[in-house]
Every structure is written in C-alpha cells, then in structure tokens.
C-alpha cells in the first residue's frame, strides 16, 4: 500500500517535472519553497541561490533564514508569492493544501508537490525529485550515498546493542500550559523507530494532550521533544516540574533529549545524521542531558 502510494506520488512528480522540462529551460531560476525540508534539500543540492522565498519553518541552513518568509504554515500569502514571479512553487503535500494553492495553479504558476510520508525511502525520493527539478542529479547521488553511509553505520551500531532492550521514548510537544504527546504516525515517532527507540505510547495518533498519570504508566526511559518548544515553555527545569513527567523513569534519571524540529522530523538530506545523533543520545553516548539552549 505504502509503496503503491509512493509510486503514484513519484509518477505525478515526474510527470510534472517532465512536462515542465519540455516547455521551459531545464532549471527554474526562481523557486518558492513551502517547507523546511524542501528548502534544506535545495540548499544541499547547491540550488540555494535559486530559492527566492521560503516558509517560516525553513530555518536551516542559516542562509535560508535570510530569504523572505511568505507562508506561516496555515496561511499562504498568495499575492506575495505571485509578486515574486516564481518559476515554480514547491513543497510537501501537507503544506500545499488549502485554497491558496488552487489560486496559484489558476494563475498558471507551476506547482510541484512532494510526498510527505516519513521514512528513508521517501526522503531519498524527495531528494531525487528535487534534483531532477533543478538539474542536480549528481549532487543528489552524493547526498543519498552519504545518507546511506550514515544509515549503514546506524545498522551496525544497532546490532551492537541488539541484546539490550530498546529504550522507551515518549515524544512530547510542549506549548505554554499544555503538554501534548506526538502519536505514532508523527515524523518524530518514525525517526525514533529509525534510531532504534521504542515508541512508549503505542496506539496514539496525531497530537493528544498527555495525561500526567499516563506518562508514568507508559514508563518511558527518555523524553524526546523539540528544542523550540522546550525553550518556549521555560526549559528543562520547567518540564520536570510538570506533574507526571518527573515520576517517570526518564524523569528520575533526568533523561531529556531536545532536538531541532527540522532535524528530528524533517526527513530531509540530514536524515542519516539525525538518526545517528538520536541513536547516540538514546544510548547514552554523546550528550544525553538535554541542551536547553543549544
């Protein structure tokens, strides 16, 4: 099923890319990127110079932040996009729903949608798609090989610890006044599984408010969260002051991992590095204590 969906997505992207290639010059000069992973990939492919605007979540690499932000995730400023006269607007499916995209298409702006499922294969597929869009297939090959090398190292490391129980990971999403948990269908959960962690609250989907007792009942060894949310809610100390989390095995050992959300859940070109990094931190190597202010 997943493969089929992927194949269809690929076909759509290829068709879009192919038809464009016939009509225009090979590489679009002005690109608007609507999600962080896409922006990151374009920069990694060496096509950063062609990106003229980004969404607010495009925070990596640092150069990307100099670009004008024209979308805040749920609100797309169509006029601002049109004013930039883009050759192509590109992003993942999730960031490209809504009436704004329809208007863009009607205005004959070329829109390219990428599949947004988490996972290594889709991540690599996205890189290939973007590479063919900007004509940087060789760079794509280099990135994917490097990612694969990281993942191979990860597999070896996983084998080395195969005797131990996988650490149970509770992924929380912190906002002022609310602690939510991310479900098993989230990108962060997929990354956790990739890095050899065990998802602590199976069956939960989407974002749900976390019951304090349930946090203890889930017996997580590690709490995983986004750096941004942790900072916005007062850092690690405030987190451990919340009822429930401090009583978990993770809380007693003060094991908290905070990761940049693009790195943890982006499934972009750094997927391999992210998985390795998370693995190391899950298994007590590298910094296991949270960096409140990295």
């Amino acid at each position: 099923m997943k493969r089929l969906r992927m194949a269809v997505c690929t076909a759509i992207v290829m068709m879009a890319a192919g038809s464009a290639a016939n009509a225009e010059v090979l590489s679009p000069k002005r690109i608007v990127s609507l999600d962080g992973g896409t922006t990151e990939t374009l920069f990694a492919l060496g096509a950063g110079g062609q990106v003229v605007a980004r969404d607010e979540g495009s925070t990596y690499p640092a150069e990307a932040q100099k670009l004008p932000a024209i979308s805040t995730g749920h609100q797309l400023n169509v006029e601002a996009i049109l004013a930039l006269k883009p050759d192509v607007v590109v992003g993942r499916n999730r960031s490209m729903s809504g009436p704004g995209m329809h208007i863009l298409e009607q205005a004959r702006v070329r829109v390219v949608r990428l599949p947004d499922d988490p996972g290594v294969e889709v991540a690599q597929l996205r890189i290939e798609n973007l590479a063919s869009l900007v004509g940087k297939e060789l760079d794509a090959k280099r990135i994917i090989e490097s990612m694969q090398a990281d993942l191979d190292r990860l597999e070896e490391k996983k084998k080395a610890v195969s005797g131990e129980a996988a650490p149970r990971v509770l992924i929380v999403y912190l906002r002022p006044g609310v602690v939510m948990m991310m479900g098993e269908d989230s990108n962060a959960a997929a990354m956790t599984r990739l890095a050899g962690g065990q998802f602590a609250v199976p069956g939960v989907k989407g974002y749900k408010e976390l019951n304090a007792e349930a946090a203890v009942a889930a017996q997580p060894d590690v709490i995983l969260c986004y750096t941004e949310g942790l900072e916005a809610t007062g850092g690690a100390d405030a987190l451990w002051n919340r009822p429930g989390l401090a009583e978990t095995p993770a809380g007693r050992a003060r094991r908290l991992i905070a990761m940049d959300d693009l790195l943890l859940a982006g499934f972009g070109p750094r997927t391999g590095q992210a998985a390795l990094h998370l693995f190391d931190r899950l298994h007590g190597q590298g910094t296991t204590v949270a960096k409140a202010h990295p």
């Binding site: 805040t72 995730g73 749920h74 906002r175 002022p176 006044g177 609310v178 602690v179 939510m180 974002y207 408010e209 976390l210 019951n211 304090a212 949310g229 916005a232 002051n241 919340r242 009822p243």
Partner: peptide, 20 residues
C-alpha cells in the same frame, strides 16, 4: 501562530492535567 492557537484552544476547553 498555529502552536499558540493550540494552547489557547486547550486553555479554553479547560482541564486539570497540570495540577500539583
């Protein structure tokens, strides 16, 4: 923004989850 919106919505729905 979206995350603040979520916090506001949750606050307005009420709850005692954070009780210490």
């Amino acid at each position: 923004d979206e995350e603040e919106l979520r916090s506001i919505t949750f606050w307005q729905l009420g709850g005692l989850n954070g009780t210490t």
